[in-house]
Structures are given as structure tokens and as C-alpha cells.
Deep mutational scan, measured.
Amino acid sequence: TTYKLILNGKTLKGETTTEAVDAETAERVFKEYAKKNGVDGEWTYDDATKTFTSTE
């Protein structure tokens, strides 16, 4: 399943996707990605669109 991440950081904005077996796995991948890029925001998830959003 393809999951999408929308980053709305103070210094980094953008989108990326990952293939994962479930939302929990995708969330771990995306949170590590955000951390590596210095984004520490509030997380939301929309199951209908398989989209995570992190907003600082």
C-alpha cells in the first residue's frame, strides 16, 4: 500500500510517499524521515486517503 506524507515544517515543506504493509509501519518511516529533516510537528492521519500530515 502506498502512503503519503505532507510536511508543513517551518524550514521544510513538501511531500513524499512510501510503500508499507500498514499505516503503523508507514508512520514509523515518516516520523524517522521528518526527524532526519529537522521537522518536529503535530501529526494527523487520514485513512481514506492514506495520508499523514506533520505541521509545525
Rank of each mutant, 00 (worst) to 15 (best):
F30I: 00
T55Y: 09
T16H: 14
N8F: 12
K4I: 12
A23I: 12
T11N: 14
L5C: 12
G14W: 15
E27L: 15
G9D: 03
K31Y: 06
S54R: 04
D22V: 02
A48E: 12
E56G: 05
F30A: 02
A20R: 02
V29E: 08
L7K: 00
V39F: 15
F30W: 02
D47G: 08
T25Q: 12
T11I: 11
K4P: 02
K35G: 05
L7C: 07
E27Y: 15
T2R: 12
T16G: 04
R28P: 02
Y33R: 02
D40S: 11
R28W: 08
V29N: 05
T11M: 12
E42G: 06
A23Y: 15
T53N: 05
E24D: 11
V29P: 00
E24Y: 10
A23Q: 12
T55K: 07
K10I: 14
E32F: 06
K35L: 13
Y3H: 02
F30D: 00
G38Y: 04
F52W: 06
T16C: 15
K31Q: 07
A48P: 06
A23T: 09
R28E: 07
E24W: 10
A23W: 15
E24F: 10
K36C: 11
V21S: 11
F52A: 00
A23D: 05
T1H: 13
K35H: 10
K35C: 10
T51D: 00
K50W: 05
V29K: 08
E32Q: 09
L12M: 14
E15A: 08
T18N: 03
L7W: 11
K50A: 04
T2K: 11
G38D: 06
K35T: 09
F52G: 00
V39M: 09
T25P: 00
T2I: 14
G41Q: 04
Y45G: 00
A34V: 06
E42V: 14
T49I: 06
E56Q: 08
G14Q: 14
T17D: 04
D46S: 06
T53P: 00
T1K: 10
A23K: 15
A23L: 11
V29F: 15
E19N: 12
L5V: 03
T11G: 10
I6T: 04
V21D: 12
L12F: 15
Y3Q: 02
E27F: 15
D22T: 05
G38R: 06
K31C: 06
K35Q: 11
L7H: 03
Y33S: 01
G38A: 06
T16P: 02
A23G: 04
W43Q: 01
T17Q: 09
G9L: 07
N8S: 09
Y33G: 00
D22I: 03
Y3S: 02
E19F: 15
T1V: 11
K36Y: 09
L7Y: 12
T53G: 02
D22P: 01
N37M: 15
V29H: 12
V29I: 14
E15W: 14
T53H: 06
K13L: 08
D47I: 10
L12Y: 15
D47E: 14
N37Q: 13
A20D: 02
G38I: 03
A34T: 06
Y45I: 00
T53Q: 06
K10T: 11
K31T: 04
E56K: 05
G38C: 07
F52K: 00
Y33I: 07
T44G: 06
R28M: 10
E15K: 07
G41F: 07
G41T: 05
T53M: 10
Y3K: 01
D47L: 08
T16Y: 15
T16W: 15
T25R: 06
V39A: 05
K13C: 14
G14R: 14
T18L: 14
T44F: 10
G14E: 13
L5K: 01
Y45N: 00
T53F: 10
R28T: 07
Y45T: 00
T25I: 07
Y45D: 00
A23H: 10
G9M: 07
G9N: 05
E32G: 05
V29A: 09
E19S: 10
R28C: 07
G38W: 05
K13V: 11
A20I: 02
L7I: 13
V39E: 04
D22M: 03
D40C: 13
T51R: 02
K50S: 05
E19L: 14
D46M: 03
S54M: 15
K4H: 13
D40N: 14
A20Q: 07
K36W: 08
A48H: 10
F30G: 00
E27A: 12
T11S: 11
Y3T: 02
R28I: 10
E56I: 07
E24L: 12
Y3G: 02
E24T: 10
Y3V: 02
D40Q: 12
T44C: 08
L5S: 01
A34N: 02
A20F: 06
T11V: 11
E24P: 09
K36L: 14
G41C: 05
T17S: 11
E32D: 10
F52C: 00
N8A: 09
V39S: 04
T1W: 12
G14L: 15
L5A: 03
T25N: 07
D46W: 03
L12D: 05
K50I: 01
F30P: 00
W43N: 01
T1P: 06
E19K: 13
E42P: 05
T55S: 09
E56D: 08
Y45P: 00
K13Q: 12
K31D: 02
D46K: 02
N8D: 10
I6M: 05
T18E: 04
N37P: 01
V29S: 05
A23S: 09
K36M: 13
E32Y: 06
W43G: 00
A20L: 02
K10H: 13
D47M: 09
K13N: 09
G14I: 15
F52R: 00
E15P: 03
E27K: 11
G9F: 15
V29Y: 15
I6D: 02
W43E: 01
T53W: 10
G38F: 06
E24K: 13
G9E: 03
T17V: 08
T51E: 03
A20S: 06
E27P: 00
S54L: 15
K36G: 06
T18C: 15
S54E: 04
W43C: 02
A20H: 03
L12T: 11
E24A: 14
K13I: 10
T53S: 07
T18K: 04
T17I: 09
E42F: 13
K10N: 10
E27S: 09
N37Y: 15
L12N: 08
T44K: 09
N37G: 05
K4Q: 05
N8K: 12
K31V: 06
A23R: 14
T17A: 06
V21E: 12
T17G: 03
R28H: 08
K50N: 07
D22A: 03
V21C: 13
G41N: 03
N37T: 08
D40E: 13
T16D: 03
E15Y: 14
K50R: 12
A34K: 02
L5I: 03
K10S: 10
T25A: 13
A34P: 00
T11A: 11
K31L: 07
T11L: 12
D22L: 04
T49S: 11
N37V: 15
K36S: 11
N8M: 12
A34C: 13
Y45R: 01
E42K: 11
F30Y: 01
G38P: 01
T17F: 14
T51G: 01
G14V: 15
E32S: 07
T51S: 04
L12H: 14
I6K: 05
T25W: 07
L7Q: 01
V21G: 10
E56L: 06
L7E: 01
T2C: 14
Y33E: 02
V21F: 13
T51P: 00
A34M: 07
K36V: 11
Y33T: 02
V39D: 03
N8V: 13
D40I: 13
T17Y: 14
T25H: 13
R28N: 07
K4L: 07
Y33P: 00
D46Y: 04
T49H: 05
Y45W: 03
R28Y: 07
E24S: 11
K36H: 09
